[in-house]
Write a protein that binds this DNA or RNA. Structure first.
Length: 435
RNA sequence: GGCGGAUUGCCCGAGUGGUCAAUGGGAGCGGACUGUAAAUCCGUCGGCUUAGCCUACGAAGGUUCGAACCCUUCAUCCGCCA
């Protein structure tokens, strides 16, 4: 997997100060001590990622980029894939009937996620070279008895019960032993990473605070190490209270281009609320303080220009998919939302721009546009007809007037593409294959 | 277990025999405006082979020329009494 070139990386002298300014610090253990250690040498920092899906999403970029921030500041990052913790799963799940993943499914996911994590970090032989780990490596060989005796005995149940995450659950119906054990596994990770890589700091979401400090305790009890650090990020939500990285439709914005096309990512960033643009720039890019604050000012003065959103979109696409992708996506956006120069787009760009749009294959004689819309967008025929009647249906960006219209030979872009649209955002690609 | 009230479209909520595919509000969708925004305004909002037809007012039966509306049974929910 190729390492993408990071578009903008502002130099940072004091990581903690930078993180603080970005709004990335919720809690830390002894802040002064952490700062001292960071100033006096290479600190190894880890963050864990459970394989809850086939891809990381924009939200998981926050801790991942934080690792990168530490690396840029001269420290060593460890990205830990939760092959074991993901196996246990977090039984907190919203729906009851979430199917249990098979070991094969999990390991497939771990492979995908590891590859994604690797793209954001530098792996070299230097002391700051990143490390990719999987907690299944040390958890799988561990027998239940060993686990209970060596790890479990360090966890006083009364203390676990007192933890916020557990007590909250006890009030709302209880939790399983498995769920309680999750904390032990995560704590063991910290100990193992200390043993293997002298890792002395763990970062994660603020909901992980309990688990992280439990790891610190275990490190002290098993290894007598007391100088390790914990740092958490605030649970970041946008101004509407949504978790970061949720598209307006509610779905996750994924890193994987198969799941969220670069074009969709661009659109997501461009549509970020004015109030959130600055926040996103701080959390999800390496753009420096001066520039971000200038963009904030720009947003306040000339909100319609959406300079901050544009910058965010460019940074994100370049960060996740590479710079060349950004250029293409920009062209496609302009054509699809602009005056309609669809004919000018070359075929690969057109395809890329429309990658996330629903598509429909047609062979032989082409049915009326209304039928194509209904079929491709999952509308009823009445709905499709209504769309035309209301002037909300477009063929290659041109408004349709006739309910019975059938695409003509000249409508086919590059000989085999049709771009249909209902309203501003519901695009449908019709592709014709010669029978 | 007894008595009373409820059940209407995605949600809330009118409607008590024909003029009901069903007032109104919200959500959604389309248009105008705009910044691919918010707010606002206009339109639309069961389906289809669309001057018409079909299916629908918790479910199933019944009365009637005709039922969301009347009757019977069932289901679910809410009160009151045991």
């Amino acid at each position: 997997m190729l390492r993408v070139s990071l578009p903008t990386v502002a130099p940072v002298t004091d990581v903690l100060a930078d993180l603080e300014w970005r709004g990335l610090i919720a809690q830390t253990t002894d802040r002064e001590a952490f700062a001292r250690d960071l100033a006096s040498g290479v600190v190894t920092v880890y963050a864990g990622f459970d394989p809850t899906a086939d891809s990381l999403h924009v939200g998981s970029l926050v801790p991942l980029l934080a690792l990168r921030r530490f690396q840029l500041a001269g420290h060593r990052p460890i990205a830990l894939a939760g092959g074991a913790t993901g196996f246990i799963g977090d039984p907190t799940g919203r729906t009851t009937d979430r199917p249990m993943m098979t070991p094969a499914e999990i390991s497939a996911r771990v492979v995908l996620i590891k590859a994604q994590m690797a793209r954001f970090l530098d792996f070299d032989d230097s002391p700051t070279g990143a490390i990719l780990a999987d907690n299944l490596d040390w958890t799988a060989p561990l027998s239940a008895l060993d686990f209970l005796r060596d790890v479990g005995r360090h966890f006083p149940v009364n203390q676990m019960l007192a933890r916020e995450s557990v007590s909250a659950r006890l009030e709302s119906g209880g939790l399983s032993f498995t769920e309680m054990s999750y904390q032990l596994l995560q704590s063991l990770d910290f100990v193992e990473l200390w043993r293997r890589h002298a890792c002395t700091a763990q970062i994660g979401g603020n909901d992980q605070w309990g688990n992280i400090t439990a790891g610190l305790d275990l490190l002290r009890r098993m290894e007598g190490v007391s100088g390790a650090h914990a740092m958490t990020f605030p649970l970041v939500t946008d101004s509407a209270g949504q978790k970061i990285g949720k598209s307006t439709g509610g779905g996750n914005v994924w890193i994987d281009p198969q799941l969220t096309s670069p074009y969709a990512l661009w659109q997501f960033a461009l549509n970020v609320d004015d109030k959130d643009a600055g926040t996103y720039l701080r959390l999800l890019t390496f753009v420096g303080r001066e520039e971000v604050e200038a963009l904030d000012a720009e947003t306040a003065e000339r909100p319609h220009a959406r300079t901050a959103q544009r910058r965010l979109a460019a940074e994100l696409v370049a960060l996740i998919h590479g710079e060349s992708e950004g250029v293409k996506v920009q062209a496609a956006s302009a054509a699809l939302f602009g005056s309609g120069a669809l004919e000018d787009l070359d075929e690969p760009t057109l395809r890329a721009a429309l990658a996330e749009a629903p598509s429909l294959q047609v062979t032989g004689e082409c049915p009326p546009v209304v039928d194509l819309l209904a079929e491709g967008l999952g509308l009823s025929k009445s709905d499709a007809r209504r769309a035309v009647k209301e002037g909300g249906a477009y063929l290659n960006n041109a408004k349709l007037a006739d309910e019975a219209a059938v695409p003509s030979e000249t409508d086919w872009l590059h000989g085999h593409f049709l771009v249909l649209r209902k309203g501003k955002r519901n695009t449908l690609v019709v592709e014709r294959t010669q029978a």
